[in-house]
């Protein structure tokens, strides 16, 4: 009997590994191996036809930290993340609450909010390129109506990053709204009624019941927003190309530039590893901190 149980346990473990194996194999092939290879590659100097690539230790990393562009780009990306993540989450939540309320033309409101999401980023960027066009664009038409002079939103260092940030928020918020909307619809309406009977107003209900119950969704959305803040750079190619003077350059765009415009793949690899490290740290911190205080049903 005991033997039986042990065998059974072992068989279950085997099944577990068998089920995990395909995903594990693919992950190894397309995620773990490239990560390790990238790390390895980042330890070598850039080879040219005259000087072959040699092992350089962490020299590439040192070069990066010494490069002022690195600090500009890192700061840009921090600002980019620091604004897009909270703002798009708040917009998404507010839009979801609004679209979930009993309002006329509810489905119209929902699909209107969702439209930016189904648009490819490149198309969205082209759209915004038109909005931002100095003098002729929609934005300048409006500000011009109130007597403001034309502004080159994308072409000047002061506004370039902000303009890019706005496009990202516009693109992301509708997508995140869908998750909030789905989560809101799983919250039974009795809870609101019970809260109303207990004397809770709309705000108290939102703060004490709704937001805590939406916390798992918020975490999910937060992680996505964070990934996007590193990953989502398509619109840079259309809007600013990181300019002017690196004012709107983000890390991934910079990596792409290093690797495919300047063909400096060792430095690009080093930068990639730094990004991976940073993201890994954030993920760990997040799971440690937030996870514990979240109620999952």
């Amino acid at each position: 009997m005991n033997e039986m149980a042990r065998l059974q346990k072992r068989r279950l473990a085997l099944y577990g590994w068998m089920l995990a194996a395909p995903a594990l194999a693919l992950m190894s092939l397309f995620a773990f191996y490239p990560a390790i290879a990238t790390f390895w590659h980042s330890l070598f100097s850039r080879g040219t036809s005259r000087r072959p690539s040699v092992f350089a230790g962490f020299e590439n990393y040192g070069d990066l930290f010494a490069d002022p562009t690195f600090w500009t780009v890192a700061t840009n990306n921090l600002i980019y993340a620091g604004v897009t993540i909270p703002v798009s989450i708040i917009f998404a939540l507010v839009m979801a609450l609004w679209a979930n309320a009993h309002i006329p033309a509810r489905s119209f409101v929902r699909s209107a909010y969702f439209t930016p999401t189904i648009l490819p980023m490149i198309a969205a960027a082209n759209l915004w390129l038109f909005f931002y066009t100095p003098d002729l664009g929609v934005i300048d038409q409006i500000t011009g109506f109130f007597g403001a002079s034309p502004t080159n939103w994308l072409g000047q260092p002061e506004t370039a990053l902000a303009s890019v940030i706005i496009v990202t928020i516009w693109k992301e918020a509708g997508f995140f709204m869908i998750f909030y909307l789905a989560a809101l619809q799983t919250i039974p309406p009795d809870l609101h009624e019970a809260a109303r009977i207990e004397g809770a107003g709309r705000w108290t209900y939102t703060r004490r019941v709704l937001l805590p119950l939406l916390m798992p969704t918020t975490i999910f959305v937060f992680v996505n927003a964070m990934i996007n803040s590193v990953k989502l750079i398509d619109h840079l190619f259309i809007l600013t190309k990181g300019g002017p003077n690196n004012a709107s350059k983000l890390i991934l765009y910079w990596i792409w530039e290093m690797a495919f415009a300047y063909f400096d793949s060792p430095h690009a690899a080093a930068m990639t590893i730094l990004v991976l490290l940073a993201l890994g740290l954030v993920a760990v911190a997040q799971f440690r901190l937030v996870e514990k205080r979240t109620h999952y049903r």
Partner: peptide
């Protein structure tokens, strides 16, 4: 509004707040 009527209610589904403990549920109001 319900809160001005001086009454309480027990729902069929109980409508307990799932993220709050028993004590917090009870003293919510």
């Amino acid at each position: 509004p319900p809160s001005k009527r001086g009454l309480s209610m027990v729902f069929q589904s109980y409508a307990l707040f799932p993220h709050l403990s028993v004590a917090e549920n009870i003293i919510f109001g």
